[in-house]
Write a protein that binds this DNA or RNA. Structure first.
Lengths: 122, 122
DNA sequence: GCTTGACCTGGAGTGCACTCCAGGTGGGAG
DNA sequence: CTCCCACCTGGAGTGCACTCCAGGTCAAGC
Protein backbone atom coordinates (compact mmCIF):
# COMPACT_ATOMS: atom_id res chain seq x y z
CA UNK A 1 0.00 0.00 0.00
CA UNK A 2 1.38 3.35 -1.07
CA UNK A 3 2.21 6.06 1.41
CA UNK A 4 -0.64 8.53 1.07
CA UNK A 5 1.55 11.40 2.22
CA UNK A 6 3.86 11.06 -0.78
CA UNK A 7 2.75 11.99 -4.28
CA UNK A 8 4.26 10.86 -7.57
CA UNK A 9 4.42 13.33 -10.45
CA UNK A 10 1.36 11.71 -12.04
CA UNK A 11 -0.60 12.14 -8.82
CA UNK A 12 0.37 15.79 -8.54
CA UNK A 13 -0.75 16.35 -12.12
CA UNK A 14 -4.07 14.74 -11.25
CA UNK A 15 -4.36 16.71 -8.04
CA UNK A 16 -3.34 20.18 -9.19
CA UNK A 17 -4.25 20.35 -12.85
CA UNK A 18 -0.76 21.51 -13.76
CA UNK A 19 1.01 19.54 -16.50
CA UNK A 20 4.15 17.66 -15.56
CA UNK A 21 6.10 19.97 -17.86
CA UNK A 22 4.77 23.01 -16.05
CA UNK A 23 5.70 21.51 -12.70
CA UNK A 24 9.24 20.81 -13.88
CA UNK A 25 9.39 24.29 -15.34
CA UNK A 26 8.30 25.78 -12.01
CA UNK A 27 11.02 23.83 -10.26
CA UNK A 28 13.57 24.98 -12.81
CA UNK A 29 12.76 28.66 -12.30
CA UNK A 30 12.58 28.36 -8.52
CA UNK A 31 8.84 28.49 -7.86
CA UNK A 32 9.25 25.04 -6.39
CA UNK A 33 12.26 24.19 -4.30
CA UNK A 34 13.62 21.22 -2.36
CA UNK A 35 11.39 18.63 -3.95
CA UNK A 36 12.29 15.18 -2.64
CA UNK A 37 13.67 12.49 -4.93
CA UNK A 38 13.57 8.72 -4.60
CA UNK A 39 16.64 6.53 -5.17
CA UNK A 40 16.06 6.65 -8.92
CA UNK A 41 15.99 10.45 -8.95
CA UNK A 42 12.23 10.66 -9.50
CA UNK A 43 10.31 13.44 -7.78
CA UNK A 44 8.26 12.65 -4.71
CA UNK A 45 5.96 15.43 -3.49
CA UNK A 46 4.73 16.07 0.03
CA UNK A 47 1.21 17.25 0.88
CA UNK A 48 2.80 20.65 1.55
CA UNK A 49 4.21 20.71 -1.98
CA UNK A 50 0.76 19.92 -3.34
CA UNK A 51 -0.76 22.67 -1.20
CA UNK A 52 1.82 25.16 -2.41
CA UNK A 53 1.07 24.20 -6.02
CA UNK A 54 -2.61 24.74 -5.29
CA UNK A 55 -1.87 28.26 -4.16
CA UNK A 56 0.30 28.88 -7.21
CA UNK A 57 -2.54 27.63 -9.40
CA UNK A 58 -4.92 30.07 -7.77
CA UNK A 59 -2.51 32.96 -8.25
CA UNK A 60 -1.74 32.00 -11.83
CA UNK A 61 -5.40 31.55 -12.72
CA UNK A 62 -6.18 34.99 -11.36
CA UNK A 63 -3.55 36.48 -13.63
CA UNK A 64 -0.52 36.88 -11.42
CA UNK A 65 2.65 36.97 -13.55
CA UNK A 66 5.36 34.42 -12.79
CA UNK A 67 7.77 37.17 -11.74
CA UNK A 68 5.42 38.10 -8.92
CA UNK A 69 4.75 34.51 -7.87
CA UNK A 70 8.51 34.22 -7.65
CA UNK A 71 8.70 37.24 -5.37
CA UNK A 72 6.02 35.68 -3.21
CA UNK A 73 7.86 32.34 -3.16
CA UNK A 74 10.99 34.11 -2.01
CA UNK A 75 9.08 35.79 0.82
CA UNK A 76 7.73 32.43 1.92
CA UNK A 77 11.22 30.94 1.86
CA UNK A 78 12.67 33.87 3.75
CA UNK A 79 10.68 32.94 6.86
CA UNK A 80 8.14 34.20 9.33
CA UNK A 81 9.34 37.79 9.40
CA UNK A 82 8.01 38.32 5.85
CA UNK A 83 4.40 37.57 6.70
CA UNK A 84 3.43 41.24 6.57
CA UNK A 85 5.00 41.55 3.13
CA UNK A 86 3.13 38.48 1.95
CA UNK A 87 -0.11 39.96 3.15
CA UNK A 88 0.68 43.19 1.33
CA UNK A 89 1.45 41.32 -1.87
CA UNK A 90 -1.72 39.24 -1.68
CA UNK A 91 -3.84 42.27 -0.85
CA UNK A 92 -2.46 44.10 -3.84
CA UNK A 93 -3.27 41.10 -5.97
CA UNK A 94 -6.71 40.85 -4.44
CA UNK A 95 -7.38 44.43 -5.49
CA UNK A 96 -6.36 43.61 -9.03
CA UNK A 97 -8.63 40.58 -9.05
CA UNK A 98 -11.47 42.76 -7.82
CA UNK A 99 -10.82 45.24 -10.62
CA UNK A 100 -10.63 42.40 -13.08
CA UNK A 101 -14.02 41.10 -11.98
CA UNK A 102 -15.54 44.57 -12.16
CA UNK A 103 -14.15 45.08 -15.66
CA UNK A 104 -15.48 41.74 -16.78
CA UNK A 105 -18.93 42.43 -15.36
CA UNK A 106 -19.00 45.82 -17.05
CA UNK A 107 -17.94 44.41 -20.41
CA UNK A 108 -20.36 41.55 -20.09
CA UNK A 109 -23.12 44.13 -19.93
CA UNK A 110 -21.95 45.52 -23.24
CA UNK A 111 -21.87 42.07 -24.81
CA UNK A 112 -25.37 41.38 -23.56
CA UNK A 113 -26.59 44.68 -24.98
CA UNK A 114 -25.03 43.78 -28.30
CA UNK A 115 -26.82 40.45 -28.24
CA UNK A 116 -30.11 42.20 -27.47
CA UNK A 117 -29.53 44.58 -30.33
CA UNK A 118 -28.88 41.73 -32.76
CA UNK A 119 -31.98 39.97 -31.48
CA UNK A 120 -34.04 43.08 -32.15
CA UNK A 121 -32.92 43.41 -35.76
CA UNK A 122 -33.06 39.72 -36.59
CA UNK B 1 -12.32 73.22 -38.19
CA UNK B 2 -11.86 69.50 -38.38
CA UNK B 3 -14.63 67.22 -39.52
CA UNK B 4 -15.80 65.52 -36.31
CA UNK B 5 -16.98 62.47 -38.22
CA UNK B 6 -13.46 61.63 -39.37
CA UNK B 7 -10.81 60.39 -36.96
CA UNK B 8 -7.06 60.46 -37.42
CA UNK B 9 -5.01 57.52 -36.13
CA UNK B 10 -4.01 59.53 -33.05
CA UNK B 11 -7.67 60.26 -32.28
CA UNK B 12 -8.58 56.61 -32.59
CA UNK B 13 -5.75 55.68 -30.24
CA UNK B 14 -7.11 58.23 -27.77
CA UNK B 15 -10.66 57.04 -28.25
CA UNK B 16 -10.21 53.28 -28.16
CA UNK B 17 -7.15 52.66 -26.04
CA UNK B 18 -5.59 50.49 -28.72
CA UNK B 19 -2.05 51.38 -29.77
CA UNK B 20 -1.49 52.53 -33.32
CA UNK B 21 0.57 49.40 -33.92
CA UNK B 22 -2.27 47.21 -32.75
CA UNK B 23 -4.69 49.02 -35.04
CA UNK B 24 -2.40 48.55 -38.03
CA UNK B 25 -1.91 44.94 -37.03
CA UNK B 26 -5.68 44.43 -36.88
CA UNK B 27 -5.98 45.90 -40.35
CA UNK B 28 -3.20 43.67 -41.62
CA UNK B 29 -4.87 40.48 -40.38
CA UNK B 30 -8.32 41.52 -41.55
CA UNK B 31 -10.05 42.49 -38.32
CA UNK B 32 -10.38 45.93 -39.80
CA UNK B 33 -11.20 46.34 -43.48
CA UNK B 34 -11.84 49.18 -45.94
CA UNK B 35 -10.33 51.90 -43.80
CA UNK B 36 -10.38 55.20 -45.72
CA UNK B 37 -7.17 56.93 -46.68
CA UNK B 38 -6.50 60.60 -47.42
CA UNK B 39 -4.51 61.76 -50.45
CA UNK B 40 -1.25 61.11 -48.59
CA UNK B 41 -2.24 57.51 -47.80
CA UNK B 42 -2.90 58.21 -44.14
CA UNK B 43 -5.77 56.38 -42.44
CA UNK B 44 -8.99 58.25 -41.78
CA UNK B 45 -11.50 56.46 -39.57
CA UNK B 46 -15.28 56.83 -39.54
CA UNK B 47 -17.38 56.77 -36.35
CA UNK B 48 -18.42 53.26 -37.44
CA UNK B 49 -14.78 52.18 -37.51
CA UNK B 50 -14.32 53.57 -34.02
CA UNK B 51 -17.45 51.75 -32.84
CA UNK B 52 -16.24 48.51 -34.34
CA UNK B 53 -12.89 48.93 -32.59
CA UNK B 54 -14.76 49.52 -29.34
CA UNK B 55 -16.51 46.20 -29.77
CA UNK B 56 -13.23 44.48 -30.60
CA UNK B 57 -11.73 45.99 -27.46
CA UNK B 58 -14.54 44.61 -25.37
CA UNK B 59 -14.17 41.15 -26.89
CA UNK B 60 -10.40 41.20 -26.56
CA UNK B 61 -10.52 42.40 -22.98
CA UNK B 62 -12.90 39.60 -22.07
CA UNK B 63 -10.45 37.07 -23.44
CA UNK B 64 -11.70 36.31 -26.91
CA UNK B 65 -8.84 35.02 -29.09
CA UNK B 66 -8.08 36.86 -32.31
CA UNK B 67 -9.09 33.84 -34.39
CA UNK B 68 -12.61 34.09 -33.02
CA UNK B 69 -12.82 37.86 -33.42
CA UNK B 70 -11.85 37.19 -37.02
CA UNK B 71 -14.70 34.73 -37.43
CA UNK B 72 -17.04 37.32 -35.97
CA UNK B 73 -15.69 40.00 -38.30
CA UNK B 74 -16.31 37.72 -41.25
CA UNK B 75 -19.90 37.17 -40.15
CA UNK B 76 -20.42 40.91 -39.90
CA UNK B 77 -18.98 41.41 -43.36
CA UNK B 78 -21.08 38.61 -44.82
CA UNK B 79 -24.26 40.58 -44.21
CA UNK B 80 -27.60 40.53 -42.49
CA UNK B 81 -28.26 36.83 -42.96
CA UNK B 82 -25.52 36.02 -40.43
CA UNK B 83 -27.15 37.83 -37.52
CA UNK B 84 -28.28 34.59 -35.88
CA UNK B 85 -24.73 33.22 -36.11
CA UNK B 86 -23.38 36.40 -34.57
CA UNK B 87 -25.82 36.07 -31.70
CA UNK B 88 -24.76 32.44 -31.21
CA UNK B 89 -21.10 33.42 -31.16
CA UNK B 90 -21.64 36.24 -28.69
CA UNK B 91 -23.83 34.08 -26.47
CA UNK B 92 -21.14 31.42 -26.38
CA UNK B 93 -18.62 34.07 -25.46
CA UNK B 94 -20.97 35.51 -22.86
CA UNK B 95 -21.14 32.08 -21.20
CA UNK B 96 -17.37 31.92 -21.10
CA UNK B 97 -17.21 35.39 -19.57
CA UNK B 98 -19.72 34.30 -16.96
CA UNK B 99 -17.62 31.24 -16.14
CA UNK B 100 -14.54 33.43 -16.00
CA UNK B 101 -16.19 35.75 -13.49
CA UNK B 102 -17.39 32.82 -11.39
CA UNK B 103 -13.88 31.32 -11.37
CA UNK B 104 -12.37 34.63 -10.40
CA UNK B 105 -14.85 35.16 -7.56
CA UNK B 106 -14.20 31.65 -6.28
CA UNK B 107 -10.43 32.08 -6.40
CA UNK B 108 -10.69 35.48 -4.80
CA UNK B 109 -12.30 33.79 -1.82
CA UNK B 110 -9.28 31.54 -1.52
CA UNK B 111 -6.91 34.51 -1.70
CA UNK B 112 -8.88 36.31 0.97
CA UNK B 113 -8.79 33.25 3.20
CA UNK B 114 -5.04 33.07 2.73
CA UNK B 115 -4.76 36.72 3.72
CA UNK B 116 -6.87 36.06 6.82
CA UNK B 117 -4.68 33.13 7.72
CA UNK B 118 -1.51 35.20 7.42
CA UNK B 119 -3.12 37.95 9.49
CA UNK B 120 -3.92 35.41 12.18
CA UNK B 121 -0.33 34.14 12.44
CA UNK B 122 1.31 37.52 12.16
C1' DG C 1 10.75 77.96 -47.42
C1' DC C 2 11.88 75.00 -43.71
C1' DT C 3 11.31 72.26 -39.94
C1' DT C 4 8.61 69.24 -37.26
C1' DG C 5 6.05 65.56 -36.42
C1' DA C 6 2.32 62.48 -37.53
C1' DC C 7 1.98 59.12 -40.54
C1' DC C 8 3.37 55.25 -43.90
C1' DT C 9 5.39 50.21 -45.20
C1' DG C 10 7.35 45.50 -44.69
C1' DG C 11 9.45 42.81 -41.82
C1' DA C 12 12.02 41.55 -37.75
C1' DG C 13 11.93 41.14 -32.76
C1' DT C 14 9.80 40.61 -28.09
C1' DG C 15 7.76 38.62 -23.83
C1' DC C 16 5.33 35.36 -21.63
C1' DA C 17 4.44 30.87 -20.26
C1' DC C 18 4.80 27.05 -21.31
C1' DT C 19 5.42 22.58 -24.38
C1' DC C 20 7.92 19.29 -26.84
C1' DC C 21 11.77 16.41 -27.94
C1' DA C 22 15.75 13.18 -28.06
C1' DG C 23 18.01 10.15 -25.67
C1' DG C 24 18.35 7.71 -21.47
C1' DT C 25 17.30 5.15 -16.60
C1' DG C 26 15.02 2.06 -13.42
C1' DG C 27 11.48 -0.93 -11.51
C1' DG C 28 7.56 -3.86 -11.53
C1' DA C 29 4.13 -7.11 -14.29
C1' DG C 30 3.96 -11.29 -16.90
C1' DC D 1 14.38 -12.32 -18.45
C1' DT D 2 12.14 -8.97 -21.00
C1' DC D 3 9.05 -5.51 -21.87
C1' DC D 4 6.78 -1.43 -20.82
C1' DC D 5 5.97 2.68 -18.82
C1' DA D 6 6.70 6.46 -15.80
C1' DC D 7 10.14 9.13 -15.09
C1' DC D 8 14.61 11.85 -15.91
C1' DT D 9 17.67 15.88 -18.26
C1' DG D 10 19.00 19.96 -21.09
C1' DG D 11 17.68 22.51 -24.49
C1' DA D 12 15.01 23.78 -28.51
C1' DG D 13 10.49 25.07 -30.23
C1' DT D 14 5.72 27.00 -29.99
C1' DG D 15 1.70 30.20 -29.97
C1' DC D 16 -0.17 34.31 -29.10
C1' DA D 17 -0.54 39.05 -29.61
C1' DC D 18 1.53 42.40 -30.27
C1' DT D 19 5.70 45.93 -30.59
C1' DC D 20 9.55 47.93 -32.62
C1' DC D 21 12.48 49.49 -36.33
C1' DA D 22 14.55 51.52 -40.55
C1' DG D 23 13.81 54.30 -43.94
C1' DG D 24 10.69 57.15 -46.14
C1' DT D 25 6.46 60.69 -47.32
C1' DC D 26 3.63 64.64 -46.70
C1' DA D 27 1.26 68.77 -44.72
C1' DA D 28 0.89 72.47 -41.78
C1' DG D 29 2.64 76.03 -38.51
C1' DC D 30 6.27 79.53 -37.86
Amino acid sequence: MADVSVYTPAEVVEETGFSIDTIRYYEKIGLLVDIDRNAAGQRRFTPEDVGWLGLLKCLRDTGMPIAEMLRFAELVRAGEHTVADRVALLEEHDRRVKAQIAGLVERQRYIKSKISYYRSVR
